[in-house]
Design a binder for these strands. Structure first.
Length: 268
DNA sequence: GAGCCTGTTCGGGC
DNA sequence: GGCCCGAACAGGCT
């Protein structure tokens, strides 16, 4: 489910817990998210600390706790964060629960593709892996030239596939990649090497726009994206291109292992 | 019951 | 080694 805007939405859910001490940490030790760090280490590492900050970067989240503890969280396909009252009955897939005095902060992930990390740093700096993440697509560090250089490295890769590469497009997932191709009127199969310099710059521009618009709409309350976008039409059978002058039946097919949706008329 | 799937990683093949 | 690509991971939902 979560791409960059949804990740921001989920991250914000835990804001209620900012400034609150973690009295107890409940885990499911056998859950797959503890493959990199044992559940016991997470319990030991976070109990008694205070949640003091949170931020997102693409599909990654970072939670800061007092004393230089940093918890990284990736939601995988189906992860979500929510807040519940203390008397909330634990659900089957609630793999991590941070219990505060007035609430529970819960990470739930039924398919368990999520990932959790914990770093304790002495100097108060963010962990190295976080600092090494590429520029966000919503920010000024995501420059035209940075983008152009990356595109030219992979001339044979289809545009849609390229847009899923987190090394350049952190946070872009399947629906956003299709949306970007559709707004560009370019077939998702277009090889990167076939793009003109003008088209490469257009990819950069639309990527920024789709990223920023998605965050603006989804982050506050999981709002609905405009019906003028492809997004609201791509899932159901019988979906048609939302362009007024087009209305052609959308095509859905596999591209490099991912379901891809496009308009056969607008995108050629 | 089979197939689907908004993500990432791993390993085989070239 | 680099690149490509399919399989695997897992389970709720249609």
């Amino acid at each position: 489910m979560p791409e960059l805007a949804e990740v921001e939405f989920f991250c914000k859910q835990w804001d209620l817990g900012l400034g609150g001490e973690i009295g107890e940490v409940l885990t499911h030790p056998a859950a797959r998210i503890y493959r990199d760090i044992p559940a016991a280490a997470v319990e030991r590492g976070l109990t008694g600390r205070t949640l003091v900050g949170s931020e997102t970067h693409g599909k990654q989240m970072l939670f800061e706790f007092s004393g230089g503890a940093w918890m990284g969280l990736h939601l995988g396909m189906t992860g979500r964060l929510y807040v519940a009252a203390l008397d909330h009955e634990e659900e089957k897939r609630d793999h991590l629960i941070l219990v505060q005095r007035e609430r529970k902060l819960i990470f739930s992930d039924y398919r368990m593709f999520g990932k959790l990390t914990l770093d304790i740093t002495d100097d108060g700096e963010r962990p190295g892996w976080w600092q090494a993440l590429p520029p966000r697509t919503t920010e000024s560090g995501f420059t035209k030239s940075h983008h152009r250089t990356f595109v030219k490295r992979f001339p044979k890769t289809p545009l849609k596939t390229l847009l899923l590469d987190q090394r350049c497009y952190p946070g872009i997932g399947n629906w956003m990649a299709d949306e970007i191709c559709w707004q560009l009127r370019l077939p998702p199969q277009t090889r990167s090497g076939e793009l003109s310099d003008e088209e490469i710059d257009a990819v950069w521009k639309v990527t920024r726009k789709v990223s920023r618009d998605a965050v603006r709409v989804i982050r506050p309350d999981w709002g609905r994206l405009p019906d003028s976008w492809l997004m609201n039409h791509r899932w159901k059978d019988g979906g048609v291109c939302p362009r007024k002058e087009c209305r052609t039946d959308l095509v859905r097919a596999d591209l490099r292992g991912r379901t891809t949706c496009w308009c056969p008329v607008c995108q050629k």
